[in-house]
């Protein structure tokens, strides 16, 4: 029951995209077609499901204070605390994983590979992936919780991007005011979708304390930086 609660929470209550607004860039750019949205959604689910537990293992066995000593049995390592390396390590793991996913998709789904284009390698810097790892870190999940959390965060992201893609398909021929077409409309629809998801906010499934404010603020800074990048690209 605990795991189901955690999953439901990650998918609906604290949807990583619509509640935390993580992973916006690929979400906005790859939601023009339902097919590519589905493909990218699967890729994100896959990467999240693998990257979260791997980062968990790195945190538990390498980075935490005394983690090295716990399995090497070297007393001198007892005081070593490498947790300041966590960001770099998490990113490195994610980057390596994305390479793997890229090769797999290139080999088995070439059409999808072409559609996703640059956004597949860009999953590396998709904030929802790193965000999930940091939430895992922040909330001190154990291994099973981490796997469930990673998978269902991905599922929440998948749900959001496919829903947006379907909505964009529906409004493709709508007579939208000129200034609102394209990204403007996508942003507005995302906001309205977030209102739709707000109905679940406040559901207290596992009585877990809310995440502390600091890392979220950092992540938000990332989002802003990324948005600026996106603008510069455009």
């Amino acid at each position: 029951m605990d795991y189901i609660n955690l999953a439901l929470k990650a998918i609906f209550v604290e949807n990583i995209l619509l509640a935390f607004f993580l992973g916006m860039c690929s979400y906005l750019s790859q939601s023009k077609k339902v097919e590519s949205a589905t493909g990218l959604g699967f890729a994100v689910v896959f990467v999240l499901t693998l990257s979260c537990p791997m980062n968990w293992a790195i945190k538990e066995f390498l980075l935490n204070k005394g983690a090295l000593a716990s399995w090497t049995k070297i007393a001198a390592l007892q005081s070593v605390d490498l947790s300041f390396l966590s960001f770099i390590c998490y990113i490195a793991v994610i980057a390596a994983l994305v390479q793997l996913v890229e090769m797999v998709i290139d080999r088995f789904f070439p059409a999808l590979y072409t559609t996703l284009g640059i956004f597949l390698p860009l999953i590396t810097v998709n904030c929802s992936i790193l965000g999930a790892s940091l939430f895992m870190h922040e909330r001190s999940y154990d291994l099973t919780h981490t796997i469930v959390f990673g998978f269902s965060s991905g599922l929440g992201w998948f749900l959001a991007i496919v829903a947006l893609a379907a909505i964009r398909k529906k409004i493709r021929y709508s007579n939208i005011p000129e200034g609102m077409r394209g990204l403007g409309m996508a942003f507005t629809v995302t906001g309205l979708m977030a209102i739709g998801f707000l109905g679940f906010s406040g559901i207290d499934l596992d009585k877990e304390p809310a995440p502390k404010a600091a890392p979220v603020a950092e992540i938000e800074a990332d989002v802003v930086a990324e948005a600026v990048d996106l603008e510069e690209d455009a």
């Binding site: 909505i167 739709g196 707000l198 109905g199 559901i203």
Partner: peptide
């Protein structure tokens, strides 16, 4: 959801999002 005792409006809104 203790925050919103009334669920009808919010669930319809949510399904509006999912309908397409």
């Amino acid at each position: 959801n203790p925050a919103y005792p009334e669920g009808v409006m919010l669930s319809i809104l949510f399904m509006n999002v999912m309908a397409p």
